[in-house]
Design a protein around this nucleic acid. Structure first.
Lengths: 201, 201
DNA sequence: CCAAAAGTGTTTATGATACACCCATGT
DNA sequence: ACATGGGTGTATCATAAACACTTTTGG
């Protein structure tokens, strides 16, 4: 999700949403505030990524950026540009425009982190609707891991972890058998994690 | 490794080494410089940990700390306090004094990161001498993982990864059979990593 | 009735675990 | 000679991988 900058420097250029931390504001609060102001996105999974502080990374002078990444579920949230952003839009990661500042480097770190962490933390579920089908989950992991997975093995592995609950509902309106919808069980995951369980895909 | 602070705030109190970033200095350079100035330690594995920026964490006003952690090999490096530090000393993690600022929280994050990352990245070798015995390596992992490991299984697993090279030398002066000394093969690790290999203990 | 994806078990291979003795060296 | 850790192999168990057909639904 990129925004087109309304102000100098890099006015009119695509960039990651962001801005300055308030004098009495926590870092994460600032990240959530800026994201909400520029895109309207709220209530997301958000985690600190890395801090970028090369001396010449901002033409205005010395600026240190504490980067955060957010994961947005696929429920079809719309984005609305406002504040300093004149436009906000989703892009595919393999079709990005040129970015302001060192934002291409920040994005590269974020992707690397996501690809690594998704294997040992249940981040994937943050990217799906609250209720999802097993095929949707499998496709997600196939995209992130960059290889095909066996349907039966994937289902067995996921189901034996005991982290999915069957909602009893099915997804309707498809030209084939209606698939069951599942939810991720956050409570159960927290319990398992405490007792030494490690999520692994 | 803690230093006793020579200046206010928290003068005389134990703290993590650190200080302010120069106006034209990269973050990692500042971390290395401060560590060298206050303890004399140089040429270490160093990695960004997390950025701490709660509004009230420093009584002087708003201070954001980009924390780094370093791993020091067991070659018996001595530490020498200087600069703002009046004393520099090693402490066991289960016998720490009270720390200045929120440094106890920073340390907790560092330990958690180390315990987690040591399992999927070859960090352990940074904590040993350049040449080490298999028993030393095993003890290290036993301490970090908090459980005993089987000698034969551990050796087989480590050796089949192909990341250790036999130096041909042995450690002398012990009251028993002289153990072989190994080196970690960084080049080979970099190769394997590129071809999709994941280190795992 | 056709197309399209959902759903389901068994066999094989691979890697993890458990386990006990002889060897080399210094005192 | 003895005490101390160094060094080695095999059998069993658990988990991962390979593999194909029937079922349900909408058009």
């Amino acid at each position: 999700m990129l925004v087109r900058r309304g102000r100098e420097p890099f006015a009119g250029c695509w960039a990651l949403p962001g801005g300055f931390v308030g004098l009495d504001e926590a870092l994460e609060d600032a990240a959530r505030r800026e994201l909400a102001e520029e895109t309207g996105l709220t209530d997301l999974f958000l985690e600190q990524l890395f801090t970028f502080g090369a001396p010449e990374r901002d033409p205005r002078g010395r600026v240190v950026s504490v980067a955060y990444y957010a994961l947005v579920d696929a429920d079809g949230r719309s984005v609305n540009a406002s504040s300093d952003a004149i436009e906000a839009k989703w892009f595919p990661v393999d079709g990005l425009p040129e970015l302001a500042f060192d934002h291409d480097a920040i994005l590269a770190v974020a992707l690397e982190r996501l690809r690594g962490k998704v294997r040992y933390a249940p981040l994937g579920f943050e990217l799906l609707s609250r209720a999802f089908t097993l095929t949707e989950l499998q496709r997600l992991y196939e995209v992130i891991l960059g290889r095909d997975l066996d349907k039966r093995n994937f289902r067995r592995k996921i189901q034996t972890m005991g982290l999915l609950v069957d909602t009893g509902k099915t997804r309707q309106g498809l030209a084939h058998r209606a698939p069951r919808l599942y939810r991720f069980d956050r409570r159960r995951y927290a319990e398992l994690e405490r007792s030494g369980f490690t999520f692994w895909v």
